[in-house]
Design a binder for these strands. Structure first.
Lengths: 178, 178
DNA sequence: CAAAAACATGTAAATAATTACATGTATAAA
DNA sequence: TTTATACATGTAATTATTTACATGTTTTTG
């Protein structure tokens, strides 16, 4: 029962831009794409093996310091073809992820329930922090706005900023209704 | 390595409102909470067994038609205590779900890439449809706005509507930048 | 009335994801 | 120089999730 294994495409997409190590790939999810996907190193390393076995990528060993050799992965032409195929294919309707906080809200019925205010305030703080961080990322990485050679990256960062801003405003509105 | 198993809380929360069958619980994810969580019946039925073994819920058999007996699940007091504990606990920062479409965008660098327009248009249609559906749900279920006894439900529906509206506007903006 | 759809409940099998365990090297900080 | 942190790469074990398989009953539709 093959599911769609999107992680393979993400890996191919990332190394298509430039060759990367397994560690680089893992760290990538701490940054911008981590707002829209998640993967741990323990998933990534076996996946790299699988993709290499399918000739979608190859690796070269490079020497760091005195002893360590790291593996740097490069996409193959076969890999590029598959990546492009994925990019061109219609994207199935997504299911919007899991928001535990929202589920909690659903189960609180009374507008005057005393649990509401602390919940909303706590989340507001988290989301404000995230909004600030993302806004900063956007101005740091794209100081003059969209540019023609990093357009997709710009788009998704604006998306993340808008999402957090909207979430923040919604939380504030909810607090005002108590 | 216990993860947090949020599904158990969702099940408890749902049957706390009123007793439900396994089938009802499964169908619940087709509706409002499905915008924020996902579960299949094959996950739900074993979970119900586990929760009953832990005395967090019980079931009664009720007769339908001539032969069929369905199981209707009711939360126990132990279950209620656990549910309340979860509701009161701080909610860990969520990871925002997986958006395949956004990942595709990330890998498209050139603003004039011919793949962009069809992608954006396709997603715009999907999200407009979803926005319409959710807006309708909101007006159908809450014709006069927030009410004091279904407040949480109202909040999350407005959240879903806003999210889709924001997504739609973002897609439109992106299209105007091509 | 027959067929289709909805209701109802499982289990098995496989993939995906997370936590845990493990080892070692190189660089930065104290 | 030593310690702490980051870099680097695995594997094992477990939980979570999805797809597949399966059977039967009741209600709705044609």
């Amino acid at each position: 029962m093959a599911q769609r294994n999107i992680l393979q495409f993400i890996i191919l997409g990332l190394i298509h831009e430039r060759p990367l190590t397994g560690y680089d790939l893992t760290k990538a999810f701490d940054n911008d794409i981590g707002e829209f996907w998640s993967a741990k190193h323990s998933q990534i390393y076996p996946q790299l093996k699988t993709l290499e076995a399918k000739a979608l990528l190859t690796h070269t060993d490079e020497v760091t310091g005195e002893k360590l050799t790291r593996k740097r992965y490069t996409i193959t032409e076969t890999g590029q073809a598959l990546l492009n195929q994925w990019l061109r294919a219609p994207t199935p309707e997504s299911h919007n992820g899991k928001d535990e906080f929202v589920l909690k809200l659903y189960f609180i019925q009374q507008q005057n329930d005393p649990r509401l205010r602390p919940m909303l305030i706590e989340q507001l703080m988290l989301h404000e922090q995230r909004l600030n961080h993302l806004t900063q990322q956007l101005t740091t990485k794209f100081p003059t706005g969209a540019n023609a050679t990093d357009f997709g990256h710009f788009l998704i960062l604006t998306h993340a900023v808008r999402r957090e801003r909207d979430y923040t405003v919604w939380l504030q509105d909810a607090l005002h209704q108590l």
